[in-house]
Design a binder for these strands. Structure first.
Length: 786
DNA sequence: CCGAGATGTCGGTCG
DNA sequence: GACATCTCGG
């Protein structure tokens, strides 16, 4: 171990209490635990699987376990490996452990996200996979740009095979811990069979650039461990105790990583909930958690089943839905909180009405109606399936002036201006960062277009130097004339000065950053920009400079920033939160709205098309996650009509609604003012009505009233009604040879039918496959309000 | 090289 | 409907 002694992580514990003193200390933190939690905390040795249902005090058990390991003197802080998925979870764990220990917790170097710990390990052993320890971490943008270059070089049409898709495929392989050599033959048909080859090229190129992507942070470590048993053995010895949060979300690479490390002491404690596995599309394997007892023989399984979050009705509704899934490990959640409100269910005519209703409901809850206490907007959340659903709420809340916050938009460090600025910093710190160079050569516009950039590329390549050096040579040889040439000379010159300035101890890194942004013309670029978002961008740049204060130098800043992508906004006035169901995992709110429960939207059609029953079950778990976010009031809603990509579509209530146990649900009568709400689907006496009616199992008076209102719908949406009629005639009623009309492509003839898509030979636009509902019979074309 | 207009695309999301 | 990317004319 001596070879790593320069790193605090392997030095003696920094907790200033002697072990003996700690062992003698009372353990008051154990008192607040229920029997199951206590078992999970005290069973320290051997593999432990903690099955923790929603709201059962999982984090409490996990953090108490860490505290217990430390206080009992069983392990030193730096001998514990504790992994989470998000920075937020890592931060919270750190805070709660130090609270339990009643002291600041500095000495846990191995508590962090998979990626943060991966970086730490990889910096130590970079040379084993051909990197230098100061490698850079590419963000998604850089990755795509790199792949685009490779595709261009390989002469692959990036229309047919977009770089994004390749990046997805490579990510997938990396999630499964597959290096280019290991990719199964069956997987390699994409990209004209060149996908694996491109993957290999990509990896080679990254080594040349001394860079790696997020997937590599895990993949490289697995490779290192597999090829160097001695290195692995060191870590196996060192990490006496391993804890893993959200185990159901681990992918194959993470799983292998964990199994390798746990191979020594075998003291691994995984916490998870198979019912909350919602990241299958990102490579997570529910199988990991289902298989735990097989992987770790003699594993001790603890179930946390007492829920401290929600009322019995909310819990009952959630349990009813999730019960429809097969292959669960099975938990029976219970609560001592009896009574409370039933889950409320309401249908609406369309998405706008749904937004209107939720807005009013939020306001009245804020005032405190129905005998309930007034509630802060901070305590309410709207959880949607897909982010495009957010817009109708934002629109509505802006009109009525209801304060809201959207969680999970583009994060601070993903914004364009921040990335540009960072690229300038990167290039000033390491002049060989070609990707950074490409990003900023012509930002702001310097008159250096494709041609000029190609010249620089050629120059760099033929001399075997970095792009910046290449640019210097181009300038010296006057390879580019005119304005572009002069601007390039200025840029090269500037970078030389900035690099010197950063090394100069006289100039603080904060000043240096400001000078770089000003000198390069980047600040001016946004000052001259007249678009409405320009002031905000300048503001962000200021914030970026401010963030530098927490670091000693630019290098240190760049080092950390690639892994810390979240921006905590300071608490302002109370606001209702809008976010996706995915983003809501791990959060809780007294009141939760779950809009858009319609088949096709939720469960998402795409998910079911791609993954069949598995996809449906994941959607169901998403429903479970949604309902269990609510503490006291949970409101589920759906709309009969919704505008999707500018087209009106009608839908049936989600099948998950049928799965809600009747005893726990209250069907609300629509407010009436807007006339009829959901029942309006029956306006033309079409089959839609019967289908919709049979799609639910409710017979409550409220529900029947809801149904009987059909036909009373107001006159507010004539266009939609028209479109709906057209939609319904359009679905599947075509045969080959029919003349049709399409809003965009004009007239054409149906050549064939594939599922819901039509193969159409358009008179002007050629042959295309089009979803049937966007097409009408040619003789009805006049009725179409396109 | 640039900007305007046309065209194509559209899940969820953590590092 | 919104946004990124492409095409074309200046």
């Amino acid at each position: 171990m001596s070879s790593y002694s320069e790193d605090d992580a392997f030095e003696a514990a920094s907790i200033p209490l002697s072990q003996r003193a700690m062992a003698a200390r009372p353990m008051p933190y154990l008192d607040g635990l229920n029997p199951a939690q206590r078992e999970a905390v005290e069973k320290l040795d051997g593999p432990v699987l903690m099955l923790a249902g929603a709201g059962t005090g999982k984090t409490k058990a996990l953090t108490t376990r860490i505290a217990h390991l430390l206080v009992s003197g069983t392990a030193q802080p730096n001998e514990i490996l504790a992994v989470t998925f998000t920075n937020k979870a890592a931060r919270e764990m750190k805070n709660r452990v130090s609270k339990l220990m009643q002291m600041p917790l500095e000495g846990m170097p191995w508590l962090g996200t998979f990626h943060a710990i991966g970086v730490k390990l990889l910096r130590r052993h970079a040379e084993m996979v051909g990197l230098k320890s100061n490698f850079t971490i590419l963000d998604t943008d850089d990755q795509i740009r790199l792949l685009k270059q490779l595709l261009a070089a390989a002469n692959i049409d990036d229309k047919r095979w977009p770089a994004r898709m390749l990046s997805g495929i490579i990510d997938n392989w990396k999630n499964r811990a597959l290096t280019p050599e290991n990719v199964p033959v069956a997987d390699s048909s994409a990209f004209d069979g060149k996908a694996v080859d491109l993957y290999a090229q990509y990896q080679r190129r990254m080594l040349e650039l001394n860079a790696c992507d997020f997937g590599d942070l895990l993949l490289h470590i697995v490779t290192i461990f597999q090829k160097n048993p001695d290195v692995l053995a060191q870590y196996q010895r060192w990490f006496k105790y391993i804890l893993v949060d959200e185990y159901q979300d681990t992918n194959v690479a993470q799983y292998m990583w964990l199994r390798l490390l746990a191979g020594g002491h075998k003291n691994i404690c995984c916490v998870g909930d198979d019912d909350q596995s919602i990241y299958g599309w990102r490579g997570a394997e529910v199988g990991n958690i289902l298989r735990f007892e097989k992987d770790f023989p003699g594993a001790h399984v603890v179930r946390l089943e007492q829920n401290y979050r929600s009322t019995e009705h909310i819990l009952g509704a959630a349990s009813g839905v999730i019960a429809a899934n097969a292959g669960r490990l099975g938990k029976t959640l219970f609560t001592e909180a009896k009574g409370g409100e039933k889950v409320r269910l309401i249908g609406h005519w369309d998405g706008e009405e749904e937004a209107r209703w939720i807005g009013e409901e939020a306001e009245s809850m804020q005032m405190g109606t129905r005998g309930l206490d007034p509630m802060s907007l901070d305590d309410m959340a709207i959880l949607v399936r897909a982010s495009h659903q957010m817009r109708s709420f934002e629109d509505r809340f802006l009109t009525i002036g209801l304060p809201y916050r959207v969680i999970g938009g583009p994060r601070f460090y993903e914004r364009m201006e921040i990335r540009d600025a960072m690229a300038y910093f990167r290039l000033a710190v390491s002049p060989t960062d070609d990707l950074a160079f490409e990003r900023i050569v012509n930002t702001p516009k310097r008159g250096l277009g494709d041609k000029a950039q190609q010249k620089i590329q050629t120059m760099a390549r033929s001399n075997g130097v970095s792009l910046l050096e290449g640019a210097r040579l181009v300038v010296e040889t006057k390879g580019i004339g005119g304005k572009g040439g002069a601007e390039l000379a200025k840029l090269v010159d500037g970078l030389t000065r900035w690099a010197a300035m950063i090394r100069d101890p006289q100039t603080s890194h904060i000043e240096a950053a400001e000078i770089i942004l000003d000198d390069s013309g980047y600040t001016t670029h946004w000052q001259n920009d007249k678009t409405p978002e320009a002031p905000g961008r300048l503001e962000n740049l200021k914030e970026l400079v401010k963030a530098l204060e927490q670091f000693e130098n630019l290098q240190g800043f760049l080092e950390h920033v690639s892994l810390i992508m979240d921006n905590e906004s300071e608490a302002e006035e109370p606001k209702i939160s809008i976010m996706t169901l995915h983003a809501a995992k791990g959060l809780e709110f007294p009141a939760v709205f779950l809009p858009g429960w319609e088949d096709g939207l939720f469960p998402s059609q795409r998910s079911m098309d791609e993954s069949g029953l598995k996809g449906l079950e994941e959607e169901r778990r998403l429903a479970y996650v949604g309902i269990t976010r609510a503490e006291a009031i949970c409101t589920i809603s759906f709309a009969a009509n919704r505008r999707v990509y500018g087209q009106w579509q009608s839908a049936m209530p989600s099948r998950f609604i049928d799965e809600l146990p009747e005893d726990h649900v209250d069907v609300l009568t629509p407010p009436g003012l807007y006339g009829g709400g959901y029942g309006a689907a029956g306006m033309t006496g079409s089959t839609l009505h019967e289908e919709a009616a049979s799609a639910n199992v409710y017979n409550s008076p409220g529900w029947k009233r809801l149904q009987s209102r059909s036909g009373q719908r107001g006159m507010s949406q004539p266009a939609e009604a028209k479109n709906m009629t057209i939609d319904m005639t359009a679905t599947s009623s075509f045969t080959a040879g029919d003349r049709i009309f399409h809003g965009k492509f004009g007239y054409g003839t149906v050549m064939g039918i594939e599922g819901d898509k039509l193969d159409i030979e358009f008179d002007k636009a050629g042959s295309k496959k089009v979803v049937a509902k966007f097409v009408v019979a040619a003789d009805m074309a006049d009725d179409v309000p396109f």
